[in-house]
């Protein structure tokens, strides 16, 4: 198992390296001129050239990459051209917000999807199953930019149960923090519930056709025990793979709710940075998000080996 994980880790390190190059190229090949951002549109060509030299932007790309990546390894992601805030600091304050949003939305998604799938997979095409399966189609059709404003309109503006905007960190005031998190968290959870429920239900139904389920029944075990102990684990592969991809997408995909609820997470920061042409911030956040995604895939690989010991055999 260790050999397998080491191999996967090696692959992911290579992927991470390639991605860092892609992130670098993305930002550097974007049209636009950082000197315009810093000096404004009316400065002289001479000053611009001076600034480019000062920023090292006149060097060949591979040298610039090398300088950037070696700084990254020493923990220095540069600073914002606009606010002069260090990129590391932006990420350090923003990332916990994304993390909390992701945790809230995913915990809710799993807490709804798993019991529902376990319940309906044993009774497919009965009323509960039909309602749940149709209902998840509805959830799939409610992306954050549709459902979050509706939540705000109903629960914040009309009913005044929750604040419309704002974020209080957990360490400052846990109760307010959780209260602030409910609407944005739920707005992000809708599609996840639908995806997880549908995958798990469909995999459970095919697992329940397996011989080993009949075998378990022939031992006199209860249906509940069989569902939990024999059917659930072998049915979680698609679920885990989808969760990996989905959480990965949420790493930067929280920007809608962060934008709407005015929370300074990474998603919000990157939108602001893009609008302000703040190159180093974009580059830094993109890198962090990409690395987090790679780490996430490694965790999913590890979970595969936990759930199914056969995986490590290849």
């Amino acid at each position: 198992m260790l050999a397998y994980l080491a191999k996967r880790l090696g692959q992911l390190v290579v992927v991470g390296f390639i991605i860092s190059i892609l992130v670098f190229l993305l930002v550097h090949l974007l049209p636009g001129d950082p000197t315009v951002v810093i000096l404004g549109p009316n400065d002289t060509a001479h000053n611009r050239a001076l600034l480019l030299a000062q920023l090292g932007l006149n060097k060949p790309l591979y040298q610039q990459y090398w300088i950037w990546i070696s700084h990254v390894f020493s923990g220095n992601l540069g600073e914002s051209y606009v606010t002069h805030e260090s990129v590391g600091h932006i990420i350090a304050t923003g990332f916990p917000i994304d993390l909390e949003l992701i945790i809230v939305s995913q915990v809710v998604a799993f807490a709804v999807a798993i019991p529902l799938a376990l319940f309906t997979a044993r009774r497919p095409n009965r009323p509960v199953d039909n309602v749940a399966t149709t209902g998840t189609f509805g959830l799939l059709a409610l992306p954050p930019f549709v459902i979050a404003p509706v939540f705000v309109a109903v629960f914040a503006v009309a009913l005044k149960w929750f604040p419309a905007t704002g974020y209080t960190s957990f360490t400052t005031d846990p109760a307010t923090n959780i209260h602030d998190m409910i609407l944005p968290g739920l707005a992000l959870t809708a599609a996840s519930i639908a995806v997880y429920y549908r995958l798990l239900r469909s995999d459970l139904i095919s697992t329940l056709q397996e011989d080993f389920i009949t075998m378990a029944r022939s031992k006199g075990l209860s249906n509940r025990y069989i569902m939990m102990r024999h059917a659930f684990r072998p049915s979680t592969f698609s679920l885990m793979a989808a969760a990996g991809v989905n959480i990965g997408a949420l790493l930067a995909g929280t920007f809608i709710v962060e934008y709407l609820f005015a929370m300074n997470g990474l998603g919000y920061s990157i939108v602001v940075a893009v609008q302000q042409r703040d190159y180093l911030v974009i580059q830094g956040i993109a890198l962090v998000v990409a690395i987090a995604y790679v780490v996430l895939q490694f965790i999913v690989d590890f979970l595969f080996t936990v759930v199914d010991p056969r995986v490590t055999r290849e």
């Binding site: 390639i18 930067a252 920007f255 893009v274 993109a286």
Partner: peptide
């Protein structure tokens, strides 16, 4: 490799620029 890249970030950036 490309799927590991944060596509949303890239799309936002490229569209904006």
């Amino acid at each position: 490799v490309i799927l590991a890249f944060p596509a949303i970030v890239a799309v936002i950036a490229i569209v904006a620029f």
